[in-house]
Design a protein around this nucleic acid. Structure first.
Lengths: 118, 118
DNA sequence: TATGGTGTAATATGTCACTAGTACACTATG
DNA sequence: CATAGTGTACTAGTGACATATTACACCATA
């Protein structure tokens, strides 16, 4: 079940995004075990090291805890997930606003465009 | 006057973005001549080949016209600039909406965040 | 026509991010 | 202790990016 990845961004980064999305959306439960690196590697059609990097990033973000020989587990700290949600929301918003400014658009104008799209 | 570049994106790409921004904001006039590749290279502390690539991209976007032996000139077609403005606006909006969806945020929620920031 | 300014092309070099292959180290469990 | 499952470390290949250098082709102009 090889997943499809966009080519304009590293695979490991896309996987991190995907997992973060699942965490935020509640698609995975607190304390759940993630697939092993090999398992996930096969599932997504990537190399083990790529998955390892994903898990490393997640751990650096305090979203997971990895135990050698046992596996990688979602944090049990719900506050962390809630915080993540806010962080990502703000970061998304700020990046957007930065781009808007760089191109000389007005916030109101863009909000209007947003509402007439999707 | 070497410019500062972010490390998470190719230099040539950042230069293209910058020039596009200037075009949209009207910081440069229709038909204006851009600096020569060598000139611009020195100005921005970059190699000639990098600038060449920038000019090539701009021409591929029909934003400039390069005349061998004379230089590279901004298009005189105002419609092209106006179209560019729309293109970039829509692309920005769509990328934003895609991210929102991937993270399970609602459009209304994000608009609210936008208005309380910056 | 000579000169200097333009863009263009080709090649070599170095760096870095990404990914993969392989082997190693730890843990649980029979 | 043996085995199978886990994460981890090392090494190498690939490609994108940027640089440096050199040479070429075109144009304006003195």
């Amino acid at each position: 079940m090889t997943m499809d990845f966009s080519r304009d961004k590293p695979i490991y980064s896309q996987l991190v995004d995907r997992i973060c999305g699942d965490l935020i959306k509640g698609n995975v439960q607190l304390g759940d075990k993630l697939p092993s690196v090999r398992e996930y590697a096969i599932e997504s059609g990537v190399n083990v090291n790529t998955v390892q990097r994903v898990y490393k990033e997640l751990e650096a973000m305090d979203l997971t805890e990895t135990r050698r020989g046992q596996g990688t587990f979602i944090t049990s700290d719900e506050k962390r997930i809630i915080a993540l949600r806010e962080e990502m929301m703000y970061q998304l918003a700020d990046n957007f606003l930065t781009s808007i400014e760089a191109l000389g658009f007005s916030k109101e104008e863009m909000v209007h465009v947003l509402q007439n799209r999707g």
